[in-house]
Design a protein around this nucleic acid. Structure first.
Lengths: 161, 161
DNA sequence: ATGTATGCAAACCATTTGCAATGAC
DNA sequence: GTCATTGCAAATGGTTTGCATACAT
């Protein structure tokens, strides 16, 4: 499942993490690298529970406390993006070498789709802000997915009768 | 503090809320209108605790359960936007007639600034998605505010020595 | 050796839920 | 009168914290 290119990414992010830990004088523990490694093996969005179970199944079990601690570090050094799409549940995804995409969130069924709008991406990246050094951004577009839009239209028609 | 224009907005959102409640066959309780009214009196971002205290101080005390219930309705009918900037605390703001703005979030001190990028706003609104009917969107730009950027640069220079 | 990081379990706290009482329809 | 909505208090559940132990430096 891991191509040569993916292996390279594993190495690159490991190195970036090392640089960060060194710069901040944090310790380079095997737990931290094991977590980073697992995250960059699976490309999907994930939440804490999923990650915790995946770590447990792998040969490297870590406590929830360590997971939260490490995720904070990874977010701080821009290797992981943390989303909160409502529901008080954090959803994470890789930040490095992740194809740029936005998120379409259905306000009715709460399903999340990824959306690649290259024109939009360019526009955002070209934007220059005073007094702020942007590193990354999240664009959440709320609305109705085609299924819910159809469903609600049907309902409204019934109400009119 | 409320200009004539603001009074108009109060009326308009009240009417929009009424339409929604009617369409959904929900009841038009005084609690719900009192909450909407307070939200459209104060233009700032706010969280539940702030709103709860503000309601308590006003002549209309409501329970937390009712607040949460009503906020959900207001979000559903696009009169209120719910943000989650991390920290497991929802932050709300008016949606109707609110000047379009994005949010700059400092990943170091977590301070939030508003940012108006008209070019960007236009680009997002012109975007057309297949199989999705967008109603509104949030653009969160993460990075370093000028204060933190300076601070961290100073720190890095010290580490190099 | 020193003190940071881990694991565990308890604490925290925003939000949700269950249920009796209220009041919109 | 009926049943959705409210208020209250207890429950929920993701996240954080305190502390003893382990281990990176």
């Amino acid at each position: 499942m891991c191509s040569k290119k993916d292996d390279n990414i594993q190495e690159i992010v490991k190195q970036k993490f090392t640089e960060y830990l060194t710069a901040m004088r944090y310790r380079k523990t095997p737990e931290r690298y094991a977590i980073l490694n697992l995250i960059y093996t699976d490309p999907r969005h994930f939440d804490m529970e999923t990650l915790y179970e995946a770590m447990t199944k792998s040969n490297f079990r870590v406590s929830r406390a360590t997971l939260y601690n490490t995720m904070q570090l990874l977010v701080d050094c821009n290797l992981v993006i943390k989303h909160q799409f409502g529901k008080n549940l954090s959803v994470y995804e890789r930040a490095y070498n992740n194809d740029l995409h936005h998120h379409l969130i259905c306000t009715n069924c709460h399903k999340i789709q990824e959306y690649k709008g290259y024109f939009l991406t360019g526009a955002i990246q070209r934007e220059r802000m005073k007094r702020f050094k942007p590193t990354h951004y999240n664009l959440y577009i709320y609305g109705l997915c085609n299924i819910c839009a159809r469903e609600l239209k049907k309902q409204q028609n019934l109400n009119k009768k």
